[in-house]
Structures are given as structure tokens and as C-alpha cells.
Simulated scan of single mutants.
Amino acid sequence: MSLEELLDGQRNEMTDNVESTVLKVAELENEEKKKMKKITQILVLFSMVLMIVSYILSNYLNQNDIIDFIYGFCNGVTFATLALILIVTGRWGLKIREFKERITSRD
């Protein structure tokens, strides 16, 4: 066996290793995207439920202090949830995840 054949064989093994690593990274990214999509869908559903509760409270029930508090709470949580969705799905979400990974990966 010649030196050239050995080097070619080693290169092929390295290429296979690089390809498998790239595939693993792509699979991990897809799993993360699916997880983020699921979280976003749950938050949107939660906001929609709170908006419906808020609408019912403001239009169909007699107003008193407790109803007003629940109405305000629903509106506040809905706003906060929608703001959280914007943060998480935007560029700030990426920066937060990178920061979290840096902190948790330290030895």
C-alpha cells in the first residue's frame, strides 16, 4: 500500500466524519426549531384564551372590583405574553439563548 493510498483513505474517513457531524448539527437545529415553534404556539393559544376571557368579562358580566381586577390581569398577561413571543422569536431571543449556553457550558 502506498502513502498516497493511505492519505486518500484517511481523507475519505475525515470527509465521512465531517458529513456525519454536519448532519447531527442540522438535526439538532431542526429539533430546536420544532421546540421553539411548539412553545410559540402554546403562548399564542394562551394569549387567545386570555383575550376571550377579557372580552367576556368586559361585555357580559356586571362590573365590580373583582371583575375589573381579573379583566386588567388578563389584559396585562396577554400583553406580556405577546411581548415575550416577540423577544423569543426575534434577534434578542437568539442572543439570550447564546448567553444561556455560554453560562451553562462553563466548567
Score class of each variant (00 low, 15 high):
S2P: 02
L3D: 01
E5S: 06
L6G: 08
L7H: 10
D8W: 08
G9E: 08
G9T: 07
Q10N: 13
N12K: 15
E13A: 10
M14K: 08
M14G: 10
M14L: 08
T15L: 13
D16R: 11
N17A: 14
V18G: 03
V18D: 04
V18Y: 07
E19Y: 14
S20G: 08
S20I: 12
S20E: 09
T21M: 08
T21S: 09
V25G: 07
V25I: 11
E27A: 14
E27Q: 13
L28E: 04
N30F: 06
N30Q: 09
E31P: 00
E32K: 12
E32Y: 09
K35Q: 12
M36G: 00
K38N: 03
I39S: 05
I39E: 03
T40H: 08
Q41E: 02
Q41N: 10
I42M: 05
I42Q: 05
L43Q: 07
V44P: 06
L45C: 12
F46T: 04
S47E: 01
S47C: 10
S47N: 04
M48D: 06
M48Y: 11
M51G: 15
I52E: 15
V53F: 05
Y55M: 03
Y55P: 00
L57W: 00
L57Q: 01
L57F: 06
L57K: 00
S58V: 03
L61F: 12
N62I: 13
N62W: 14
Q63V: 14
Q63A: 12
Q63E: 06
Q63F: 11
Q63L: 12
D65L: 14
D65Q: 07
I66D: 03
I66F: 10
I67F: 13
I67V: 15
D68S: 15
D68T: 15
D68L: 15
F69W: 07
I70P: 02
I70N: 02
I70K: 05
F73I: 11
F73C: 13
F73A: 15
G76H: 05
G76I: 01
T78F: 02
F79P: 00
A80K: 01
A80M: 06
T81A: 06
T81L: 04
L82I: 12
L82H: 02
L82D: 02
I85P: 00
I85L: 00
I85K: 01
T89P: 01
I96V: 14
R97M: 10
E98A: 04
E101G: 01
R102N: 11
R102Q: 10
R102D: 11
S105Y: 03
D107C: 06
D107H: 13
